[in-house]
Amino acid sequence: MNQINDRTTVNGKKSRSRVLEMSINGEAHEITVKPRVMLLEAIREKIGLTGTKDGCESGTCGACTVLVDGQPTLSCITLAVECEGKNIRTVEDLADGENLNYLQEAFLDQGGTQCGFCTPGMLMSATALLEKNPKPTRDDINKALEGNLCRCTGYNSIVDSILQVSDQGVKPRLL
């Protein structure tokens, strides 16, 4: 095993930074990163989009979920360099200016957000699900969202949000 003597070098040399081009929410970005930089860090610190949340840094809570080429991805355990040339979508991409999309509205209608920290990840996982499967069953929803922890809502209202937006008989609960 490699012994870490000097954290900032690899075998006495600085690691090679890379210039990455990626599309974030439809905008072309160019960033320079060391290999060790995670996609989450790149999005939050380099691009400055802080909607994506950092809950555990180990891929267990899902708060950092973003879409990479449409696939729900744990940005806290994905190296930014792995996303060269990819299309990244974050929670900031969902609304059209001041107009929330139907999924966002449904979360508000059902009380699917409380503290709100899991919400960006939940929304992105749900977005990926609905893009693949416009009328998901409860089982489909469970499997799609099992990697997104929520401590506030107990999940029922989140499931209802997705059932509402997919037009499966759930009506708004809040005015």
Partner: peptide, 8 residues
């Protein structure tokens, strides 16, 4: 605070 929370 809902709109702020669902938009990031």
């Amino acid at each position: 605070d809902g709109p702020d929370k669902v938009t990031g």
